[in-house]
Write a protein that binds this DNA or RNA. Sequence first.
DNA 1: GGCATTTGACCAGT
DNA 2: ACTGGTCAAATGCC
Length: 281
Amino acid sequence: MKHHNGRYLPQSSPSVSDHRSAMKEIARGQSLVTQLRAIVLPALQADQRCELVAQMFQNILDCSSKAITELQLHHQSDARVDDALVDDKKRVRKISSDDCVKEEGATSNPNHQHKRSRRSDDSVSLETPVPHYDGRQWRKYGQKHINKAKHPRSYYRCTYRQEQDCKATKTVQQQDDSTGTDHPVMYTVVYHGQHTCNENNGIDSGTDDSETNTPSSSDSRSSISTACTDLYDHQTSLNDNKLLEKSADMITKNCMYEPFDMTAFAPLDLDSWELDALLRF
DNA sequence: GGCATTTGACCAGT
DNA sequence: ACTGGTCAAATGCC
């Protein structure tokens, strides 16, 4: 890089925006892999090859997750440097408020709801026509109308938040300019935090401890219904909840085992435009 | 009855 | 004061 006076500036580390766009791209890759998996796996017969393919998909997702984690670590340290350069007062306030959060978390005073922070730093967003097929199991805990947005924002947290103290959350919001009539409805999905739960609860039961944390049947049911909640909202996709469960049942029977999250199979029941959207995305 | 979802209220950050 | 994130009681579904 050359400065205007002709002298070379020291090679700087990637900027915060570089990190952010890199994380975006990786997250997009994750989304694509997840969607590809949802298409490919149901088409495979339940044999060792199927298991191998599932494991490979999971390995790819694991790699990208680790990459995002690494980027986030760099991103946060860079952001701290930026803060110091930009505004010391703000930084001090930020740190002290962080301390408050930590203290509250430590004391967990039941009389106070835990402090919330508007999280923008550790989030990764992506756009997808199928916001729920990310191979994870989520539980909806809130929905809110957002200012100047046509559609409400749904709030999800990891199903295993209580059992395994997994802090991962995500928000799903239908984009304003997607009507869902002629072209696929697009959603903005923002992921906050990293999953700390045993991945086996979601997808990769191909790994060692696959029998210890398999979700109960009710959990499977919940993940399926959660995965479809927003799709039902606009009435253009699925018209019968039972159809999805029936499909999940069929797949379970056909495969004889459950190497992946059942949500991964859900697109089998998508309407043609949704499948088309998956293929084009 | 047990579970997940819905929804209004509450709270914290800006 | 406004906005967005979370909580928790109410509700609905299986």
